[in-house]
Design a protein around this nucleic acid. Structure first.
Lengths: 207, 207
DNA sequence: CAAACAAATTGACATTGTGTCAATATTATC
DNA sequence: GATAATATTGACACAATGTCAATTTGTTTG
């Protein structure tokens, strides 16, 4: 029994090690360069394995990155699933701003990996699809929140919740990429505050 | 004099013709396929010219598309430059909704070309930069409008106009791409109406 | 108008990267 | 220790790019 497992493990171990070596190398090479300019040759060289080996373990560059993305994805999903049950409009506003901040902060923390992901989104169909998953999960979640706020009389009911949710998420997403590219001058707090203010109470004065 | 010009023209004419043949062919091939899968070989074959010729006239696929983009770009710039001088918040709202509608309608009209452009944005640095130009022009324009509305007391003054403008444009831009991909279920009118409503007066009730 | 010149066109070539697969090396089983 | 199963490998075929010396086409000049 024990020796049986050991033997199976020994063989699997090599596989796992090789896979791991490839992932470590891939992360390094991706981060040192771009997604586009990174080649399989660079990765296998760094990993110290043969060329064909990469294709035994992964379908190509794309899949390598997808596996590397997984941790980051999980963290995004966590942010998406934060509870939202405000009693008043003020509370809602506060919670929304907090979530926007958390979203942008995550971008800041995972900047390096997300820089690569953004590049890959442009090039790789499969990674674009993966990102879309995250997006749709957020949007679905936000739609629920909008419906909740409408149901409890906090939010106006004349607007399609899904359309509202998409618009709100899109603004946040684009700022996310600006944060990743370090293109933004304002602080995350100010961005979140501004977006939330417009989203919840609008830009124009009302009496 | 006349014959002089004629002779110069005759030589130039060949160049112009070749260039034109390449552009026509490129448009066709791009539209029949994707940006990524389109190759120079396909284009020159369609244009009926030699391989090297393409590189004499254009630096590569990217530049070919940039030239093809120009018309569409111009139309976007036109939309961006529509006047905005509302007297009341109601008027402002109306004008903003109109511009959002015009923006999305343009996407619908130029869908085919913009589909290629979107793909190219992901792959090509230079085309990404070109798109960024359009974006910044819009954002700058919107920032001015926000400042105007703030100055005339129509809009709240406690928010950074540029941050607001970016957020607003981002939401519109993402919907633009959804329209291009024909991924949206709602009509352009409803999208514009919803985005504008949230942007101008906010999602939450106020007394 | 024909020789010399200038400009535009061409396709073969070197280069770079991908993905596949038959051969080889390693590990497990009998 | 022989055999079978599995993992690894790098050489190869293929696809696309961008370059450049040679060729073709058009212009000028004596």
């Amino acid at each position: 029994m024990k020796s049986d497992d050991m033997k199976i493990d020994k063989r699997h171990l090599r596989t796992i090690r090789t896979r791991e070596k490839l992932l470590v190398a891939a992360r390094e090479v991706f981060l040192e360069n771009d997604f586009q300019t990174t080649t399989i040759s660079q990765i296998i060289k760094r990993a110290g394995v043969g060329y064909g080996t990469a294709y035994v373990h992964f379908e190509g560059k794309d899949e390598l990155l997808i596996v590397l993305m997984e941790d980051v994805m999980d963290r995004f999903h966590q942010v998406a699933e934060q509870p939202f049950e405000p009693g008043t409009a003020e509370e809602a506003k506060k919670q929304i701003e907090q979530q926007a901040t958390a979203f942008l902060r995550l971008a800041e923390q995972e900047r390096e990996m997300l820089r690569i992901v953004e590049q890959a989104i442009g090039v790789s169909y499969i990674i674009r699809a993966k990102w879309k998953q995250i997006r749709e999960r957020f949007i679905e979640r936000i739609s629920r929140d909008v419906r909740y706020a409408q149901g409890s009389g906090l939010a106006r009911s004349d607007l399609n919740p899904t359309l509202v949710a998409r618009g709100w998420f899109f603004a946040n997403e684009m700022y996310l990429f600006e944060v990743i590219r370090e293109e933004t001058t304002a602080s995350i707090e100010e961005i979140a505050k501004t977006l939330t203010a417009v989203y919840t109470t609008g830009l124009y004065e009302h009496d």
